[in-house]
Design a protein around this nucleic acid. Structure first.
Length: 259
DNA sequence: ATGGTCGGCAACCGA
C-alpha cells in the first residue's frame, strides 16, 4: 500500500509555463506528470529543472507545435514515442512503464472543424490509439492513459451543449470513438469520483473571462483499467493553478491511487 | 465602450 498520484496538464509551451509547473510539482509532489503541447524541440527541453527536483523527464517534441512529456520521480522503462512507426516526430504520443504500470500520454489532434482533412485525421488518430491500446495492453491489467483528447464526451463536459453540439471537440463522430475506449475497458476516472457538471479543464483564450463565466470544456482525461479503478482514491481538477500570472488555457487534472 | 487571446517565432499558424 502506498500513495501514487498522476497528473496531466496541457502546458501550452513548457518554457512559458516552467515556473508555474515547477511550483506546482513542488507543492503537489506528484509521482508522474504528463504534459502536452510542450512546444519545444528535444534539445531545448528544460530537463535539468526537473532533474534538480528529483524527477526524470521523458519527452518528444518538435519545433513550435505539439510535444509531449512524462515527468516521473520513479524509474521508467520501455519508453516509446510516436503512435505510428516512423512518425515519432509528430510528438503526440509517449508511453513508458513506471512502477510496473504502463503510462500512455497523448495529445490528440485538435481537428479544426468537422468536414476538414484535419478532422478526419483526428478521428483516425483516435481510432488508431484505441487499436494501439488493444494490441499492446489488456483491460484486465493495470494501465493508465492520460492526456488532452480534445473531445468532450457528454453534455455535462461543456458549458453549452445545445449550442456546441456538432462543433469540433463536441461532435458525435468524436464521441462515438471515445465511447469505444470505455467499452474496451477504460474508466474515465474524473467521472468515477465526480459526476456533476460544471467541471472543466480547458477555457478558450479567445473567450474573454471564460473561467469566470464558467465557459469551459472538459477535454482532458485520466483513464484507467479495472485493477487501478479499484485503487483510485480521488480525482480533482486543480483550479488554483489557473491563478498563475500567465495561466495555460488548460489546467491540471490529478488522480490519486492507493497502490 | 469604437476594444476583445496566447505562444512560437518572425509572418502568420495553430489552438
Amino acid at each position: 500500500m502506498g500513495k501514487f498520484t498522476l497528473a496531466t496538464f496541457n502546458a501550452n509551451s513548457i518554457r512559458a509555463r516552467l515556473p508555474a509547473v515547477l511550483e506546482w510539482v513542488k507543492k503537489q509532489d506528484p509521482d508522474v506528470l504528463c504534459l502536452q503541447e510542450c512546444k519545444v524541440q528535444d534539445k531545448d527541453f528544460p530537463s535539468t529543472a526537473f532533474e534538480s527536483m528529483g524527477y526524470t523527464a521523458l519527452y518528444r517534441g518538435q519545433k513550435s507545435y505539439n510535444g509531449v512529456a512524462v515527468v516521473t520521480r520513479h524509474p521508467a522503462e520501455g519508453i516509446r514515442t510516436g503512435l505510428y512507426e516512423g512518425m515519432e516526430e509528430e510528438a503526440r504520443f509517449i508511453s513508458a512503464t513506471i512502477r510496473k504500470i504502463p503510462v500512455v500520454n497523448v495529445y490528440v489532434p485538435q481537428g479544426v472543424a468537422p468536414g476538414t482533412d484535419k478532422f478526419a485525421y483526428k478521428l483516425r488518430w483516435l481510432k488508431d490509439l484505441l487499436s494501439h491500446l488493444g494490441h499492446h495492453y489488456n483491460p484486465k491489467t493495470p494501465l493508465l492513459v492520460a492526456g488532452d483528447f480534445n473531445v468532450a464526451l457528454e453534455p455535462r463536459d461543456v458549458y453549452d451543449p445545445e449550442t456546441l453540439r456538432g462543433e469540433v471537440g463536441f461532435h458525435p463522430d468524436e464521441q462515438t470513438i471515445l465511447q469505444d475506449y470505455l467499452s474496451w475497458g477504460l474508466v474515465d476516472l474524473l467521472r468515477k469520483h465526480r459526476p456533476e457538471g460544471g467541471l472543466y479543464t480547458f477555457w478558450d483564450y479567445r473567450i474573454p473571462n471564460a473561467l469566470k463565466r464558467k465557459m469551459g470544456w472538459r477535454i482532458d482525461y485520466i483513464f484507467t483499467t479495472a485493477p487501478l479503478v479499484q485503487k483510485s482514491k480521488n480525482v480533482w481538477i486543480d483550479l488554483e493553478a489557473r491563478t498563475a500570472e500567465k495561466p495555460s488555457d488548460h489546467t491540471f487534472l490529478v488522480a490519486e491511487f492507493d497502490l
